[in-house]
Design a binder for these strands. Sequence first.
RNA 1: GCGCCAGUAGCUCAGUUGGAUAGAGCAACAGCCUUCUAAGCUGUGGGUCGGGGGUUCGAUUCCCUCCUGGCGCGCCA
Length: 547
Amino acid sequence: MSTADQLRAELARAARALGAPPDVAPILERPRDPAFGDWTSNIAMVLARPLGRKPRDVAESLVQSLDLAAGGIRSTEIAGPGFINFRLETGTLAGVLPVILKQDAAFGRSVVGAGKKVNVEFVSANPTGPLHVGHGRQAALGDAISALLEVTGWSVSREFYYNDAGVQIANLALSTQARVRDLAGEATDVPEGGYHGEYIREIAERYVETYPADAHGDDLDQLRRFSVQELRKEQDRDLQAFGVQFQTYFLESSLYENGAVDRTVRALVDGGKTYEKDGALWLCTTAYGDDKDRVMRKSDGTFTYFVPDVAYHVTKWERGFARAINVQGADHHSTVTRVRAGLQAIGMGIPEGYPDYVLHQMVTVMKAGEEVKISKRAGSYVTVRDLIDEVGRDAVRYFFLMRKGDSQLVFDVDLARSQSEENPIYYLQMQHARMCGIFRNGGIAAHEISADGVDLSVLGEPEEQELVKALADYPALLVNAAQALEPHRLAGYLQETAAKASKWYHKHHVLDEPEPIFKARLVLARATQVVLRNGLAILGVDAPERM
RNA sequence: GCGCCAGUAGCUCAGUUGGAUAGAGCAACAGCCUUCUAAGCUGUGGGUCGGGGGUUCGAUUCCCUCCUGGCGCGCCA
């Protein structure tokens, strides 16, 4: 039990002794200003109304009945309208450091997810072109969310879903065919709805090399398979360069082949929420909050995309995922209601909010002071690969993760490149490298640093106390960030913690200090390095030992 | 017209279930390299938290309304 939990429990006990409602949960948080202590609680103000007393009176009574020793409290004060501020003993504060050293790479891990299975689906780009910057944002977000869930005790499976057989893929095959015929000297137009990118020409060239017998591109089926395969390979190279790995690649075509789509349609019809109109089959999505009903089966007999989508999510449930999280661009937000409606209409006991969606706003790319229009069909994009090549994998990941997904993101390529020396990611990595530099200069093996027998109460400098508090907050921050599915909170935390580490580093020395100080500070340096490294790992960013 | 997301310092953005004097980076200005990495540190200036109303001890945060911007509103995916 952490000291904060002990304090919280003690506050709850004192509050109930005063006659507070039994469900009262005392809020204990870090005050904005360190002058207000190490922890602060607003509980007296919350209780003032139910108890019919003035906030400061309630605070007074609470403080008198608190068992201060139980929480390692040095002093309390009542401030402002009724805040109770707590100051901890220095030794209590530093109690987290031995824990960090002992747990090392495991520090911050928790079991709140209880090992339950969660499916995180992201990127899910159809194999009709290279991954663009929006996919990059999804890759960074999805991978970091997955990592956050893993360290908080969930059993995570990363999944990539793609369509390998639909209308878009047929257009892809026709586009490649047109380029193959170009190569054969027959001027051919790319078909309506086809793809114009330079990469199609390159695929056509490889096709002709691979299948010299079909130099005129007559075998459309072979063209389709080859194009899909080439583009999938290309996307996988990009994902690998970005450091993202998926456990499962799920093909939309499999849902047709194994009958899942038909079963889903039957289940929906049996559920009684469908009707025929104008030769089409409709689903009453309005019964689940949609603004109009949606067509499932068109009058030409084919299904609209959302039917396989529902079938797909049924498989997630059937595969035992208690929770499913989809990371998508906000331009897909209209599918949220539809997919959830379909799952409800089947009536197989899937929870109402299934699946969760993390929708991110659009990325616009600026280059040479102008917005680059991203359009697959016009063949103009900035790819993930472009960004990685220009500013580096770590910077691209961090850039996408340091802002919350709800905000639109302007990615100025020139700025990102020219700023590379000012980039916040270097600052963060630098603080980590500096801690490692201390160990290196001292000829100390980092993993052998131990807090055993070290008097940590000598860490009394303000910069030390601030840094120690930040390190102690790490596990709770991970739980909050994971629960909110918001990796940017971790990015912000690391930035603040690195700043505190930097202030401490510049003001106080570790090596060549008197032994008790040296030993204690070495522990603090190691603990700082461990937390920075662990946090960066979750964001998928390297923590170099020297720069 | 309807729905979703946003509007916070010159710029890019944080602000964790409502808390005390609203923060960071960049940019600007002034200092700091015989000191474990100056890719850094210290300090200064900079705000109608889009406007208005409401809820309460207390609102950037919750509710209503209006304004502005982005996205989506198909028998496309």
